[in-house]
Amino acid sequence: MTDLIFNVFILLTIIPCFWVALSSNIVHAAFSLLITLFGIAGLYVLLGADFIGVIQVIVYIGGILVLIIFGVMMTQRGKLLPLSIQLPGKLFGAVLTGVILAALLLSATRTLWPVAAVLGEPQLTSAAIGDLLLGKYLIPFEIASVLLLAALIGAVLIARRSVRGE
């Protein structure tokens, strides 16, 4: 039974990805990203990481994706944002990613992972994550807080500057 659900979620994740990569219309890409993120959230829950799954839905889809779609809408009217460091076209991109994909697939299947004999029944993780966060991983937690602070100030600074049209 879990295999069936597992395969459903995999399809839910992978298929929209192709739209994100290939579709010409940027709005289509944004919404297909939405579906992919839901698929990933499902995979997280399937992996017993319920807290992470919920966080993924709230933060990632609720926050980041809304921001991306907001960005897409804002820049929709004007011409495309030209970026001068475009690597030479699709062929190069396709070849490079193909090589990386092969290497990754090879490594994923070839190495024998020390898989745990008995898979523990997934229990509620949010409490455990809480005390881990403030216990063992205190330093990254602090640095992450400074990071979010700096990003906040920086984003406001740059955005406000452009609105005033300097």
Binding site: Y137, P140, I143, A150, L157
Partner: peptide, 18 residues
């Protein structure tokens, strides 16, 4: 520790991006 390395690296790069 891998996580500390990653987050510290991100913070330093983001402040430079800004």
């Amino acid at each position: 520790e891998l996580l500390t390395i990653y987050v510290a690296l991100e913070l330093s790069s983001y402040s430079l991006y800004i």
